[in-house]
Design a binder for these strands. Sequence first.
DNA 1: AATATAACGTACGTATACTGACGATATGAA
DNA 2: TTCATATCGTCAGTATACGTACGTTATATT
Lengths: 157, 157
Amino acid sequence: MTIELDIAGALAERPGFLIRRMHQIHLALFAEECAAFDITPVQYSIMTVADSQPGLDQAQLAYEVGVDRATLANVVARLETKGLLRRRPSVSDKRVKLVSLSSRGAALLEKMLLPVQRAHDRTIAALPPKDRETFMALLMRLVNAENDYGRAPLKLG
Amino acid sequence: MTIELDIAGALAERPGFLIRRMHQIHLALFAEECAAFDITPVQYSIMTVADSQPGLDQAQLAYEVGVDRATLANVVARLETKGLLRRRPSVSDKRVKLVSLSSRGAALLEKMLLPVQRAHDRTIAALPPKDRETFMALLMRLVNAENDYGRAPLKLG
DNA sequence: AATATAACGTACGTATACTGACGATATGAA
DNA sequence: TTCATATCGTCAGTATACGTACGTTATATT
């Protein structure tokens, strides 16, 4: 007689599957809270970094936000078209473009503060407060430990 | 004197940001482990469900995998082109196409079993075993609680 | 039986996300 | 100074991911 082993595990018990679903859930919550602004989480993240660290070039900005250069250039171009960001060439290095937030971008950032906060809160709201802290601590630990994965290689080899 | 409050929190302390990074990390680990097969996590998930529940239509399959109908149709079309899946029209309902795994698909699924397992294991490997269980339990709880978000509405309104 | 409603698959548009390649520019070592 | 190497921004290609809309087909209501 044979015992049927579920070696791979059910879909809903795999870390990767659950993380993808969580990502989708957060995107939906963010979209719901920020529907009035037509801004995505990544766009908001870029604007945040452009605000706190004005004048970064695109590669540095990509590293801070955690996307590759090509993706960042796409998103930044969209935000520039909307008048929320500005790009200007560097004088000391003709390769780079320095990114900074426009006044319209800064104003939008302020208006979005609370909705964004709500989206993040709702993402983990189903857990009791104590478990939320635990979850966030573990999440930070994981991301910090494997931070080099899933990001465009900054150094070519 | 003023105390500067970091109201929104640093990027790396927001659930949504960390979840997006975790997703990227898992995608990278999966790609690394499964480089020989040219299959993505979502493609693998679809093949898994097509294997365990053969003959589902695309909408049901989309629900099981956790993507919307349009996305699923895209991925399934690619897998069909590769000869890993088959679609056949239903006789009882002319609207639907029933999806099932081909023998080549089943064989590939077997070959990928261990690499996929490794990718999932590595995704949470940075945590000590006890914390892994905690993390997975909290993750499952969150996804189950908000499972209706981030998925194409199955019922039109 | 006629009609409204709903579900299926699909197409289009948009956004993230990454790889690989490219020309332009900077910087290191010979 | 020359030359190899590295980095910057960009482009092309591919893959998820979703909203919306559409025609086709089922089902429920009247």
